[in-house]
Design a binder for these strands. Structure first.
Lengths: 231, 231
DNA sequence: CAGTGTTAGTGTAAATATTCAACTAAGTTA
DNA sequence: TAACTTAGTTGAATATTTACACTAACACTG
């Protein structure tokens, strides 16, 4: 057996992001158009090198890329997976650490002007975006969608896609969109109460031409709450 | 905004493994003693550089390290997480891709002679191993344990720690060990039947000085089955 | 200002699942 | 053959889930 301790392998390493938000067309992902080779002109998940001088850790690098592309600073952010292989980048053995970010609807609206030139929102259709993507990004996006759809079943994930204040009906509607099925209203409300990740915003009500609804906000906008049972 | 496309950041990158098996003392993890600096003499999770010429992808690198240290070729293997920061390795900005491996009890016994010299099994106590580990490996091990304990609640994970053939009573006993609580026998059997990841080994029974028990094996030794409800 | 439409939020009976413990089954051992 | 041990099943009491109907609170209409 040989020791490789002084023969450090240094692959090409990037941090790539699957950034999601809700648009009128449903769940959408942020894509950029690549300026340079390889895959120049193709769409890709936004990403970038880790800046060895600037980024203290991988999550900091992910937050930096996110801010560069969207202007948003405090999203829900979670590491998805790392892929690395000889063949995924024509320039050689490369590694990509993939993060998932969820942007609240009002954060997206407010920072519209801060969004990077080359970035655009694309609605999700089925398992992807109906476009071929650079590198293995189509497969990374598919994994990200699988993770998100899985977590909708037993976590507060959809709450991170809404504006800061929302009603229970709006929240239920996001769950239904992401799950692709209808939920029972009373069972839904019971789950939300048990899971204990919402707090009512005192004195604030959604008013329309019908009974006003209590508004809620997430107790913690940064972290997911996992349920005891499926929704 | 600057482009860094030709300024590829190349960190130090290793694949590290949290390899678990069952010993008489319960769940155990494989540790190695480091031969070289940094942390020479300390215990660490087994790991190594990706071999750019030899490993097609990250999982291949993980399987190679696993085989070098244990002699086992076909374990349950799953990527846990990737950590990367300026400070985790005194040699500079470094990345570690961490995998979890589960070894079946008979695989461990059979390959005892193939196990690496410097490797040893240490029983888990609480959130770790009661030893300080090199780098941030204590924290990586803690994350690995959290992942495992979480999955025991709603997956076939414990089945991957048993010998290839086992009885339902043995399986229940492993669930109980990992969960730290007793389970109801009839409810347990109902769950296992619903989850549908076991198949009876026809004609084989465990015989002792009592009623013989049907033996079972995993339908798929490589993959986990997730349950609809908690166990 | 009564009537209607619409969405918010609650209540309840029937169906389903869980729990707890007792029971039967099939072998070995004395 | 009786006692012992572990395998595997059954069932009644209790808790939870589901489906759906009900009440509540507003705006709008005439």
């Amino acid at each position: 057996m040989t020791t490789h301790d002084n023969d450090a392998f240094k692959p090409i390493a990037t941090v790539d992001l699957a950034i999601f938000s809700l648009s009128p067309a449903g769940l959408s992902v942020l894509l950029v158009r690549r300026a340079n080779a390889p895959f120049a002109g193709d769409r890709a998940l936004p990403g970038g090198w880790v800046h060895i001088d600037e980024d203290a850790d991988l999550e900091a690098a992910a937050r930096r890329v996110l801010k560069e592309k969207t202007g948003v600073e405090t999203p829900y952010l979670e590491q998805l997976q790392t892929t690395g292989s000889r063949s995924r980048d024509p320039r050689g053995w490369s590694i990509s650490i993939v993060y998932i970010a969820l942007l609240s609807a009002d954060a997206v609206a407010k920072r519209q002007d801060l969004m990077a030139e080359e970035a655009e929102w694309r609605p999700i259709e089925g398992e992807g975006v109906g476009l071929s993507l650079a590198f293995d990004h189509a497969s990374l996006l598919k994994e990200a969608l699988a993770r998100i759809r899985g977590k909708v079943e037993y976590s507060s994930l959809p709450g991170h896609l809404l504006p800061v204040r929302f009603t229970l009906s709006e929240l239920q509607s996001v769950y239904e969109t992401l799950l692709g099925r209808k939920l029972d209203k009373s069972a839904f409300r019971k789950r939300m109460a048990e899971a204990d990740f919402l707090e009512p915003v005192e004195g604030e009500m959604r008013r329309a031409s019908n009974r006003p609804a209590q508004m809620f906000r997430l107790k913690d906008a940064q972290s997911l709450v996992l349920f005891d049972r499926r929704i």
